[in-house]
């Protein structure tokens, strides 16, 4: 037990791989749901839509003040009861651990992405809106083709940081008895006693994926280089 023995990896690999796939799938789904919903939340606040903007602000404040792990618990235990009261005869309607994870992560991340987009929207120069008006662009085209594409480019480093945090947070699904990369490693480590090896390997995998993502965004930024300023 004294020296490191990575031969255990040969057997462990398929299980770790399935854990990794789950982590990546959950990250991807939460990213897509979070960005779409988050952008809607940000726009609702940006346009000061009556009532809805206040509701969204309250939602974001609430979500951001609660640990994700607590939200996962709540969703898993409370939503079936609520659904039961709404659609059934009061008996809880279970939604399952996997669905709970995907929906909760998506809703949770939406609050964070929304704040990033909202700040980005405020940073766009007033002249950009005026140029769109002067060119008779519709509000939809203004936001889709000009404003949001700039916001997302400028905010991409922060969006990436948030997404890396999201990727690491997927390990919290252990509270729902789901198995992600870290969960898989931890189960195997306890089975075969090779804790150090297992935790080293997953650390390397997390590191590799996170730095690959950073590199990817950096190269995208180089390709679409603009200083953001217009002199």
């Amino acid at each position: 037990m004294n020296s490191l023995d990575f031969s255990i990896l040969l057997q462990a690999w398929p299980y770790l791989w399935s854990g990794l796939l789950f982590s990546l799938a959950l990250t991807a789904a939460a990213f897509v749901i979070g960005m779409l919903l988050g952008t809607c939340f940000a726009l609702v606040q940006h346009f000061e839509v009556p009532v809805v903007a206040q509701v969204v602000r309250g939602y974001i404040a609430l979500i951001r003040s609660i640990p994700l792990i607590l939200v996962l618990f709540w969703f898993f235990f409370l939503v079936p009861i609520v659904l039961g009261h709404l659609y059934g005869n009061g008996r809880p309607i279970p939604i399952g651990a996997t669905w709970t994870a995907f929906i909760t992560f998506g809703l949770f991340e939406a609050a964070y992405y929304s704040e990033i987009i909202r700040v980005g929207l405020r940073a766009v120069n007033k002249g950009q809106f005026e140029a769109c008006q002067a060119l008779a662009l519709s509000t939809f085209d203004t936001y889709r083709c000009v404003i949001l594409s700039q916001v997302i480019r400028v905010a991409s480093p922060i969006i990436l940081s948030q997404t890396i945090i999201l990727f690491q947070d997927t390990s919290l699904v252990y509270v729902l008895s789901l198995t992600d990369l870290l969960g898989a490693a931890s189960k195997l480590a306890q089975l075969n006693g090779r804790l150090v090896e297992m935790y080293l390997v997953v650390a390397v995998v997390y590191l590799a994926i996170s730095s690959a993502a950073s590199q990817c965004v950096a190269s995208l930024r180089r390709r679409y280089a603009f200083t953001g300023a217009h002199r």
Partner: peptide, 16 residues
Amino acid sequence: RSEVGMVFQSFNLFPH
């Protein structure tokens, strides 16, 4: 607006 062109002091080109 589609019939009126406008040029601004600060150009306001779309940087992206």
